[in-house]
Design a protein around this nucleic acid. Sequence first.
RNA 1: GGAGAGGUGGCCGAGUGGCCUAAGGCGGCGGUUUGCUAAACCGUUGUACGGUUGAAAAGCCGUACCGAGGGUUCGAAUCCCUCCCUCUCCGCCA
Length: 436
Amino acid sequence: MFDIKWIRENPDAFDAGLKGRNRPPAAAQVLALDAKLRAEQTLLQETQARRNAASKEIGAAKAKGGDGAALIAEVAAFKERLQQGEEATRRFEVEIRDLLAGFPNAPASDVPVGVDESANREVRRSGTPRAFDFKPKEHFDLGESLGLMDFEAAARVSGARFVVLKGALARLERALGAFMLDLHTREFGYTEVSPPVLVRDHAAFGTAQLPKFEDDLFQTKPPRAPEDSDSGGRFWLVPTAEVPLTNLVREQILDQAALPMRMTAQTLCFRAEAGAAGKDTRGMIRQHQFIKVELVSVTAPEQSDAEHERMTACAEEVLKRLDLPYRVVMLSTGDMGFAAKKTYDIEVWLPGQDRFREISSCSNCGDFQARRMNARYRTEGQKGTRFVHTLNGSGLAIGRTLIAVLENYQNRDGSIAVPVALRPYMGGLETIARTD
RNA sequence: GGAGAGGUGGCCGAGUGGCCUAAGGCGGCGGUUUGCUAAACCGUUGUACGGUUGAAAAGCCGUACCGAGGGUUCGAAUCCCUCCCUCUCCGCCA
């Protein structure tokens, strides 16, 4: 969400940001609306001032024993004008707010400009893809051959884009989550959180899933919810723990001493993925439901760039410990998410697909979400409050990490070596193999 | 699901039609006092918009904001309606 004052003072910078996002300029439209609103406000305020003065006189007259009838008739005539002014003012306010809520965040100055992922810039690589002396399989072949990954069973229960993991693979999923949480909490100072995964409209608005991306979300509501209420008693299933974690500071005024605030959570994530039909239909890459360990930081504005690098490094460390090759990519203006001003994607090497695939996305949202959430902080010794900066990143997506382990650690016979770092979490198991 | 109670400034909390320009307290900030700290005392205290003075910093005036929206009224934190949210007890439930 943009600050209307900032747009007033920097209309060109605002339009430049939109241009980077491949959108037409809009400052003129915003400012015209803003001018109309303020003119309407001024008119309303003047009328209100006259009404207030007259009403005061009526009160004084009555106190002296008079009836103030002449004044009452005079003030009553204001009524219609006041109502019209209030209605017009409110209408413009809503219009501006809705308009502002629909603009994506302005990209940071070092973000490559482009229309899509082809303009993304590779930043660095780590690890060397293993040389196979056989043709490496894709994860779904490996999992199904092991008898531990069952898409048909999942389809019988829930339809397409779900999976059932069993035995050692179910445990591997659990091990990955525990491993990541331990790393982030013990070594990187993140506080483990177990948040709600059903959230209200205002929380989804705060992190900018609403109002533009409603179609990507599952929603639900309790039985017998009041039919006539605005939201219908609705909840949204979170597409990422970013939503509840970031919203933990909504409507709060934090002490600067509490910053940076670092939180991590493992949660289920739910995505309707309406527009993605036909893409990655096989396997676990794109599911309606998956588990992810999320990292969220809340910082002072001056800290957020450094925190962004640090957060990305924390996510990368998971892959390093698992000895999985990856690269880091800075997304172009056209490929970034709505709320982000700068994003690093981490892409893991998948030998079965012979390509890098996204496994984490780390974004600095600046004050974009903080404005929507009204999340501020106060510095001791200074007047007033400032909006915090918020950052989020996957650390990592568990399902895709599991895929990466299967494909990178596969043996010729279809068995899977367990990465050394995960063995303590797997009861010392060294190899996942078919058991029947 | 049943019954009840609530939502007021950074926080707690008073406030049943005009004296609300929201009491009081806490916290914050500034000051006085003081080897230092603490305490005490004095002062101060939000957001948005408009107008105005000023080179600026800032000041002054006005309007709105007491969960949201609508209504009654010359006038609403206060009365009425709808909605949202929270809490308590009971019931059900992992």
